[in-house]
Design a protein around this nucleic acid. Sequence first.
DNA 1: ACGGCATTGTCAGCTTTTTGTCAGGTAGAA
DNA 2: TTCTACCTGACAAAAAGCTGACAATGCCGT
Lengths: 221, 221
Amino acid sequence: MRILLVEDDEKTAEAVSASLTAAGYAVDHEADGEEAWFKGDTEPYAAIVLDLGLPGMDGLSVLRKWRQAGQTFPVLILTARGDWSERVEGIDTGADDYLPKPFQMQELIARLRAIIRRSAGQATPVITISTVSLDTRQMRVTVDGVPIHLPPQEYRLVSYLMHHAGRVVSQHELTEQLYAQDFERDSNAVEVLVGRVRKKLGVDLIQTRRGFGYVIEEPES
Amino acid sequence: MRILLVEDDEKTAEAVSASLTAAGYAVDHEADGEEAWFKGDTEPYAAIVLDLGLPGMDGLSVLRKWRQAGQTFPVLILTARGDWSERVEGIDTGADDYLPKPFQMQELIARLRAIIRRSAGQATPVITISTVSLDTRQMRVTVDGVPIHLPPQEYRLVSYLMHHAGRVVSQHELTEQLYAQDFERDSNAVEVLVGRVRKKLGVDLIQTRRGFGYVIEEPES
DNA sequence: ACGGCATTGTCAGCTTTTTGTCAGGTAGAA
DNA sequence: TTCTACCTGACAAAAAGCTGACAATGCCGT
């Protein structure tokens, strides 16, 4: 299985590369963002390990371009520990997992295995439920084919609920997903958010399970 | 569905236990390795959540002994974040998945569900008894296919009884499951709850065993 | 830099739902 | 019958969620 490692720090790159090779992967290494983008777009990789701070082109931009081009390979992002904003952006952009630096090689390998396995099952760039579609590539929502503009936070809410359609998602879980860890717990921000989204996408899409959370119901099973 | 939680840290154990219970599982808790081994080898668990560093017998040894004895239940291992070597060993030994601490409860539950489903081949997150179905994902109850709205406390009651179908559950046990420990003991809240649920799901579903408790009878087979 | 617009969290008030309590009623068992 | 366990309808307090208004913040174009 071929892995593309995008990492500009040479020492890290060598170490990671050696470990992945030892684990049985065929590893291509790229240090420059633009080069990496080209390779990812043209070669059939099983997964990509992507460091952010790159020369040439920023890591997130590279990822964004891949996704826009329709590439669905799983991407594991290496981030500086605790960098919340990078994480959120990564989610928006379509990363599959994050590994805070510094990390152990075994952990990297385990996570890589996990996302490869996961991606083998499902990778849909567009989720549609009743009249609402979520295009994760273009980060766009349409209702009856009409594009609806959603600001970032509202988009994330819809995205999360649609990715977990059919499951009740508690307010607490949503708070964890949408806000930094130290966010005030007794805020009603999520409720407000839900209200705003409902106003735009229709009141029926997101249902309230009073006392439990919110659901977007799956089309009948 | 019964889960065996093997965890020596009391705080963690309580938190995990509460979440799993809330998710509809019947949780047995064991802190000692040898005790855990015996229980796992003799009781029919749907899955086991296994923490490593244990007193009595090391967690991995316990797992190894189970596997040598031919036990096939899925095992989810909890590991300390840094302790990746344990993780790798755990997988080798026959663990089905592992979760690094600290983790989010929702993640634990999701993974647990996943390995249980995998091990059962085609198990669904839905329990059906006669005309009544309980969908644990959507947290919804249907009667003859018609969704019935149940508020949290009523839902929990039904969920608990259905997960323990065929067994008489005492009022005291229900009180322990549904209310905080210091709940007034001479309250008839459970009776009221049962009444309300019966009104919605039909009077036959929950049967009274005067002097003992309540049962939902399993469909004989 | 400045003004305007978009975004988003907070807040207060309001509506709806949930749920325990209570006071009697009913029914099974001895 | 009589005791006890359980059931039920009404009620009120509390909780949960919704909404409009507002303010802080940040962004964009001039």
